[in-house]
Design a protein around this nucleic acid. Structure first.
Lengths: 284, 284
DNA sequence: CCCCGTGATACCCGCCGGGTATGACAGCGC
DNA sequence: GCGCTGTCATACCCGGCGGGTATCACGGGG
């Protein structure tokens, strides 16, 4: 009556994302009619219209939007329950029984900090094994939510800390990475106005900077190469200097918002190993 | 394979809380054998032992503890999805279609602040209807998590803000509420040392102050009466002066931790009405 | 006008969730 | 030691429902 099975949520989320019963059914590995029926039952049980079926496609109602958001959160929570339980019981395929922490980091960022953190933590008595999980651009949050990770290094304003507990670790300015021969590369500092017309590389679904000129990139090597070839530029935290090439130039961007690195973890985590890692991090 | 139905979570949580298959089955309105079988299937599918069946009772394994925590969170998320979807679609029995916010407040606290907030918000153009939901002692967090409320007034250090977004609204000191004739009532200030031996009333599951002497109470009137009768004393935020009786005396407790009132809401809320309420609150 | 693509309906079937009856076993009182 | 009691597990059956296939209803476009 007033409870939803995760199966129903999966079905609805699939339909809501595809806005097409046929494709959603295919994605779910089932036929379309039972999917239609399931969604109808869902609407009846909730007493709410979730979709506007207007021949030629399907649209979400307000209630549908709400269920899409909340349903995703609930599915993440259920997935997290499975992953964390398996991990706690040592049935995650890692072989090792437990006392293992998964740390999500944006691939390639905060090298130095990460190094210091891992070294310092490993030196603690009774430290758990830490698996470093390189995450995509901005998906550390997802990884914490759905249980793929126990703790993450996150960078405001790129990542949102909403819904997590966190501690601040480090603040740094940002730099503009340019081809070495670029006219602006000789400057000692730059401001946002200076780079307004520059083609800046964009990570897909970054969300911080609006779509502008510049290519979409998917990994840092790709980016480094594009800059070296003079095809683009990029704005990065100071610590990105660690992976610059000889063909790159870095100029401080004085009026860019500072990037703050946090260590973040799901609220209400009750793990000794995690607490120890956090303590270590904040004392670096 | 790697997904759990909420039914299975409900079953496991019931067993984990009762630590007894028979009672859990009764609570779930079903017979014991299918419950046993369901839990066994769960353990097989997760590949993890969740319970130690030691004839004469059942105990949680480490993995079981984890699944209890995570499972509760997932069930809350699913319940929240149902409630919020119904609310968004106007099928919550409230009659009114939507644009309705449910605000959880600890019954009887922050009267003045609450008044000002509601008045100020009601004056905003296009303000939603606000339903004030008096919550038990410290369960505003639960209410936000499982969707009974959209936003809450919370008081650190009594409530935990973990997992929510919040804004600070007000800080106040604490007072000791005493019977008017009490020897300490004549003092102008008190310190924690002064009241060390005093019987202090305790809310059940409060968690902030360890169990000590003094009765357990369940509502504020009950407390007020017990104090007036000289049977106990209590420590409360300054704003509690609003509901004191003539037979009460209030003395500032100078070294008690200040109580900070926050407005808190589930992370990632995407409601215009909520944003407006928060904006109003922070501008009071 | 017909055909295509959409979601809805009709009908059937096999699986699995749930019930009842019973078993296995440990503790305990006599 | 024996039987009683309370516990969880096993055995077996049944009905409902989740899912499949076939088909319908309907709107839009060539």
């Amino acid at each position: 009556m007033d409870t939803l099975e995760t199966r129903e949520l999966r079905y609805f989320v699939a339909v809501a994302e595809e806005l097409h019963f046929g494709r959603a059914a295919e994605r779910l590995g089932m036929a379309q009619p039972p999917l239609s029926r399931a969604i109808q039952q869902l609407e009846r049980r909730l007493g709410v219209r979730l979709l506007d079926r207007d021949r030629r496609g399907v649209a979400l109602t307000g209630a549908g939007e709400m269920l899409l958001h909340e349903g995703r959160a609930a599915l993440d929570a259920a997935a997290a329950a499975v992953r964390r339980t398996r991990r706690a019981g040592g049935a995650d395929g890692s072989g090792g029984p437990r006392n293992r922490l998964v740390l999500a980091v944006k691939a390639g960022s905060s090298h130095e900090l990460l190094h210091k953190l891992l070294d310092a933590y490993a030196a603690e008595p009774g430290a758990a094994e830490v698996e470093v999980l390189p995450s995509g651009t901005c998906e550390q949050g997802e990884m914490l939510r759905d249980g793929r990770a126990d703790v993450a290094l996150m960078h405001t304003p790129y990542n949102s800390l909403a819904g997590f507990d966190s501690e601040e670790l480090m603040t740094e300015g940002q730099i503009v990475i340019l081809p070495a021969g670029h006219p602006l590369a000789a400057r000692h500092t730059l401001s946002l106005a200076d780079i307004a017309g520059l083609p800046l590389a964009r990570w897909p679904r970054d969300g911080v900077y609006p779509p502008g000129p510049g290519p979409e990139i998917h990994d840092q090597t790709q980016l480094a190469q594009l800059i070296a070839l003079g095809r683009t530029a990029a704005v990065y935290p100071d610590s990105a200097r660690a992976w610059l090439w000889a063909e790159h130039a870095a100029v401080p961007l004085i009026d860019a918002p500072p990037v703050v690195t946090h260590i973040a973890w799901p609220a209400h985590s009750r793990s000794l190993a995690l607490a120890e890692l956090i303590r270590t991090a904040t004392r670096l």
